[in-house]
């Protein structure tokens, strides 16, 4: 029994980005959680939020599930549409919250016998949060743009679709002047010769 799986370019992008989001926002936090849990409390101490570690983990997982879902359904909405703009904005806000949640593990205290290492990576997470806020700004800009220029984007997308459709159709050569004609035409627009569709 043969199973053929035909995917369009859009679907391939959609699936691969969903898998990537799943790995980054769900798989890695789950692995990290259990790794830390095994090392705690003897070796690793998460200074300020040691007691709230489980709650922060649940929060991170919920945001991870939402992000993966959003990433998957994002491609069901038409390009340059308001709905897509809103989903994009929600996505970037959620990633920001996700970063804030994960930044809590940036304050580490690792102790092994008589030695200990205190590492404060909050500055790095802060830098990433600042960079991510630019994405939110960009998404707000896009949303306003989609709303204001709704008609332009509608025609823009339609035109592109139409051009793609035209490109995918085979053209027929005129038997007299060799002009490439569309299959639905009955006569050649140049020499008025009758076009015979072989198909």
């Amino acid at each position: 029994m043969k199973i053929s799986l035909k995917l369009r370019k859009n679907e391939i992008i959609q699936i691969s980005l969903t898998i990537l989001t799943f790995i980054l926002t769900l798989l890695l936090p789950i692995i990290g959680y259990f790794q830390f849990k095994m090392a705690m409390p003897n070796e690793i101490y998460l200074s300020d939020f040691q007691e709230n570690y489980d709650i922060v983990f649940i929060g991170t997982i919920i945001i991870g599930i939402l992000l993966t879902g959003f990433r998957y359904y994002l491609y069901y909405f038409p390009q340059y549409s308001l709905r897509r703009g809103i989903i994009n904005l929600l996505n970037s806000v959620l990633i920001m919250i996700f970063l804030i949640f994960t930044s809590q593990i940036g304050n580490l205290d690792i102790t092994i016998e008589n030695s200990s290492l205190y590492l404060n990576l909050t500055g790095v997470f802060l830098l990433l949060i600042v960079i991510w806020s630019l994405f939110i700004f960009k998404n707000i800009y896009d949303l306003v743009d989609f709303k204001l220029n709704q008609n332009y984007y509608k025609t823009f997308v339609r035109e592109r679709k139409f051009r793609k459709k035209i490109k995918s159709r085979p053209l027929i050569k005129c038997p007299q002047c060799k002009y490439m004609c569309r299959p639905e035409w009955k006569k050649c627009p140049i020499c008025n010769a009758k076009i015979t569709n072989m198909n």
């Binding site: 008589n114 030695s115 200990s116 990576l121 500055g123 790095v124 802060l126």
Partner: peptide, 15 residues
């Protein structure tokens, strides 16, 4: 380290 964004402290006792 890293433009003063990373702060670390190494403690070793009883060497």
């Amino acid at each position: 380290y890293f433009f003063n964004l990373v702060d670390f402290k190494i403690i070793e006792n009883n060497i």
